Simulated scan of single mutants.
Amino acid sequence: MRLMCRHYLFTECLPMSAKNLSKIILPVVIVLAVLIVVLNSYTVISPNERGVKVTLGQVEGGVLQPGMAFHAPFVTVIRKFRLEPKTYEVSFSCGADGAITKDMQTVGSTVAVRYVYDENRIMDIVTRYLNDSVIQSAMRDNVKASLKETVGQYSIYDLVEKQNEVTGKVAQAVLDRMVDYPIAISQTTITNWDWSDDFDKQIKETANRAQEVKKAEQDLKLTQTNAQKKVAEAQASKDAAELTAEAELIKAQKEAEAKMAEADGIAYYNAKISQNMTIQREQWQHDEQMAYYEKWDGKLVPTYIPLTAAGGVVNLPSASSGAR
């Protein structure tokens, strides 16, 4: 009786547990399904991206700008294209794949092309090209063709000396060949030039000879500079001597002029003193004359008796004898 009761309870409880479980699972499945549908109904486009909506292989609308783009779930795909610079490198070996110069030398190199998608031609990428690999494949072929075409215009020695010119021509050739593709090429550089070991040896020997020639030129310039320095020093000494002599001459002339001025001053001083003495002497004579006149009583001396130095009387001739 107890076993039968237990069996009854188990059979009663089992349907109740499955029913409760189904009530829990069904809402969870619905929520998950809705969540999956919602998550597949929009795409976020970053600021440096642009998008194109493709539904079952057909392009819809125009280029999608940054932001949230809603679309039908599962059947619509948003293809996104990043508008950031990319670098594509193409390497050439020095062997059979290398470029041949004008003098029949084989060279290799690495060409790096920096480009970005043309925002105005995003639709062309989707409608005309499957993906970016098609553009890169075209770029690889065009870069090789541009390099080989340009290298064939130069000798291997010219490539060494005119690398900037060669790079510029290759860059222009790549631009011309890729003009129909929806990309904007901003820079093309050529690095890692490679050539045969024999030519590499020749370059080193040429560089050594060039260094020797340059050293000889520098030594010659040094000798010329020293000679010019000595000439300049001699000329400076000569100029200094001439300036010293000229200064001494000017000094002597100035001293002579000073002495002449001093002599003129002394002569003028003496003349003034002599003039003053003459004036003084005349003044003394005048004073003596005035003193004589003051003491004169108005009478003339009647007879003038001349005397000799010894005190004797001098006999003067008479007026009649003098007239005779």
Rank of each mutant, 00 (worst) to 15 (best):
I122K: 01
I122V: 07
M123E: 05
M123C: 07
D124A: 09
V126P: 07
V126T: 11
V126W: 10
T127H: 03
T127G: 02
T127W: 01
R128S: 05
Y129G: 12
L130Y: 09
L130M: 09
N131R: 12
D132I: 15
D132V: 13
D132Y: 01
S133L: 09
V134F: 11
V134M: 10
Q136I: 06
Q136S: 13
S137D: 15
A138C: 12
M139V: 04
R140S: 04
D141L: 10
D141R: 05
N142M: 02
N142A: 09
N142P: 07
V143T: 14
V143R: 05
K144G: 11
A145I: 09
A145F: 04
A145D: 12
A145H: 06
S146A: 15
S146R: 01
S146H: 01
S146G: 12
S146T: 12
K148G: 02
E149V: 06
E149G: 15
E149F: 14
V151R: 11
V151F: 04
G152Q: 03
G152W: 07
Q153S: 02
Y154S: 02
I156F: 01
I156R: 03
I156D: 05
I156S: 00
I156T: 00
Y157H: 07
D158W: 01
L159A: 00
V160F: 03
E161H: 08
K162W: 00
K162R: 13
Q163D: 00
N164P: 00
N164M: 05
E165R: 06
V166L: 11
V166W: 04
V166G: 01
T167L: 03
G168F: 06
G168Q: 13
K169I: 11
V170P: 10
V170Q: 11
A171H: 05
Q172K: 10
V174G: 12
V174C: 12
L175W: 13
M178H: 10
V179L: 13
D180A: 14
